[in-house]
Design a protein around this nucleic acid. Sequence first.
RNA 1: GGGCCGGUGGUCUAGGGGUGAUGACGUCGCGCUUACAACGCGAAAAUCGGCGGUUCGAAUCCGCCCCGGCCCA
Length: 935
Amino acid sequence: MTLKAQDTAAREGSPQTPGGGEAGRPAEGLPKRYDPSSFEAKWQSYWEEQGYFRAPDLPGRGPHWTIVFPPPNVTGILTFGHSLQGTTQDLLCRWQRMKGVPTLFLPGLDHAGVATQMAVRKHLEKQGVNASALSRDALHGHIETWRKEKEVYIRRQLTSHGFSMDWSRYVYTMDPRYCEAVRTAFLTLYRQGRIYRAERMVNWDPKLLTALSDLEVIPKETRGTLWYIRYPSSDPDAAGRGEGLVVATTRPETMFGDVAVAVHPDDERYKPWAGKEVQLPLTDRKVPVVTDPAIDLTFGTGALKVTPSHDRADHDIALRQKPLPSKRDTIDERGRLSGEFVPERFRGLERFAARKAVVSELREKGLLVREEPHVHNVGHSERSEVPIEPRLSTQWFVDTSQMGARALSAVRDGDIHIVPERWVKTYYNFLENLEPWCISRQVVWGHEIPVWYCDACGAYDAYEAPPKRCPKCGGEELHQDPDVLDTWFSSWLWPFATLGWPGRTKDLERYFPVSVLGTGSDIVFFWVARMIMGSLQFLDVPPFPYVYLTGILTDRQGRKLSKHLGNSPDPLELIEQWGADAFRFALLFPIPVEEGGAWDPQRMMEGARNFLTKVWNLTRLLAPSVPAEPGNDRSPPDHRAEGALLDAGAPLMDRWIASRWSRTAEEVDSRLTAFDLTGAAGALHQFLWHEMADWWAESAKDRLAGRDGPKTEASTRRLGLSVLERTLRLLHPFAPHLTEELGHHLSPKGTAMAVARWPARDELPRDPVAEAEVAALQELVRGIRTLRAELRIPPDVQPEAYLRPRSGPALELFRRPADLAVMVQLSRIGSIAPLGPSESPPEGCRALVTASGEIFLRPPKGTAERPPEGLQALRKERELVARLLEKADQRLKDPTFVDRAPPKVRDEVFAKAKELRERLTLLDQHLAGEAPVGP
RNA sequence: GGGCCGGUGGUCUAGGGGUGAUGACGUCGCGCUUACAACGCGAAAAUCGGCGGUUCGAAUCCGCCCCGGCCCA
């Protein structure tokens, strides 16, 4: 009945009273099972309705916490990387929001030029539309339709992660305001002379017919062939040159574009050739032999054909060898041989077909000396995946040298910190070797280039709005540059264009700079470095003080998770199956966020889900139904109330768990401050599961069951709830839905967790004495459990135990019957009797010796007198102690150690040796006699 | 070719000069002990990639080497 009602509420998405003690859910309590699907959607819409995530409109500068989410591409489905980024960034935002800092988590969408155009074309072609025949406007229309569809879907995906984004400030890189920012950026740089047109070697994609930036080119290891081609001597009679020169190349089809053969100036083999000419095979042309220091003597034959139009290095060589032409196009934009230099019979052949044709003709003519397999890296288009054709072409470039230098010093001078720090060097390395940034793309989808050309005189300039006439010749026929801008030319403005730049908006004033820029380490160059350049250039300040780089997650075979490879789990499916909280937690823990590594979905999700289940059940133990406790409403906690529960006479385990909580709160907060999200998650995992649940709750069960009277029961419950509720708040940024659900269960009328106050680290008192005593208690309890497991004592049999304390804290424990009772409970034995220093335990006991004390257990009648294997634990303990003692003694015997080690270390070792020696004696007595031992 | 990162039980991982080297998953015992089998208790399992060096003392610092990965050419 109960479950059913909830399910309906969740499906409908917006219950009237989400926390509802009265209407939403019957007050009896928490369902037995942790079922995230029954409440996650409910809280998402509740948060949204309440407007918790809308960043406050505040005037002027002031404290703020801003994170701009790296905008997903309109291409469609969210990637795993977005889930990871969103999770880390949402965590930081929720944490700061709870601290009361005005917080903005800004979502957006990237138009993603080439990638989107490709996706939409593919989509249209599937529907039978011939995309290449469409006009620019028509294609824009289709893309717009596509965008509207994807936008809704992407938003739903982000929301279903529980990300606390401010959707009222959502930005699309094609919004008119954003377009203005892009235009302003272009015009500013253009007028400063930092944007220019030039003919340069670019990465040409012969399929998409566009230039690509270096970063869009993916080198792929490719098996090719190295062909050795003879370039015959042009004067065969000359001494030593009769055979001609042999040149090695992987691209014989480009030979018609050769302008020279180059050799290293120090290469003895080719000394006689310098300045001479060779015949260019398959043509009637001759080319000179030049010397250039860039030639690698060891590669191939040490002689290189120089093809300036189709190879970057060759182009550089040709430029250096002044009289040589630096341009000789023989391959057209579609990758076909063409032009006057190509013999008629090869013209029009596609490059790979041409390669075959050229090779076979060379072979026929006996000019092919040798061919051998050759593995090398070939640049491929990230977008279309075809091999890149280096090509000379006229493009727009940004001169980034000065901006790069500023970006470099921003990090060097400590204005920007990169976390983890090791990426700093990579960042330097990139900026120290900056190339001009090619920003024009020959596609139709993207930001237009605000440059107009005069049809009459050819003059061109950049304008804010379409010019009426040419300022030079007065011509009225002008046309705009047909190219569009590289997507990254809009992305690099993201931290400030999203806040209204170039306008001087309130948001820009309040929420800029961004507090931390989080992204995957794979786009340090594409994005991070350029945003830093852009912000320094246009606003004169760094865009953010911190860059937080996450690692790259891989599958079990170490391959990057990507849609491409199909090895990336679908975030939505994971959320549906396991819940958003489990997914979030699994992304953070236990694999370190900034390291990345193999992410096995099943295993990760199970681990996270089990942990959250634990939290669920712990809450169920403490508050099976809505507690009637007054004042338990998440308002600032009442220190006096807890003070009374935690005075000197309070139960040891209570004082202990409060103290542990305090340490955990501090650890979580300081780890978050240091961007150690995994560490913070780990601290909570450790505390909730292995301290609060395993030890405190186990020790408190009797009290909670009312066995010590109703007053004790009430105070225990109150203390437990007080610690639990505080921990839920600490956990909220990690698992927002679960903690919201449980928080409302605990106090139906309380503040929502999403806006609850982040606990101060010293809210509950530290108690080092209690911590030391519980450490001893745990050691003794574990000893008893070990012994009992070894003696094969059945669970329902409760033997008697005798303990003789050896350490100070243990001694204290034995003074207090209540603490002994806790030990009895935790180790499931019948009774514990303390033994004085000279007392002996009764006959028939088995013993174990720990640092805290000696443990004796009497197997009840009827159980095995002695386990078949004997007393392994005791024997192993002896071995270990003996080994440790020997080590310690050795050090103490070493005069240099005694001489040079700090006194503190020396004393420690000395004390340790003393303790070990005593323990060894005890162990030997137990082993030798198996008899109860007196002094 | 240049640069960066990592190598710790079967797997993943903590620790960054003095530890009895964390913890998780998995494995093996024993248990459905009324918060939790999505669990509990116990056990087995690592000479911290190799070789040198610095040091009274190295998983930890330095050098070289080997292996894996990433980035830029």
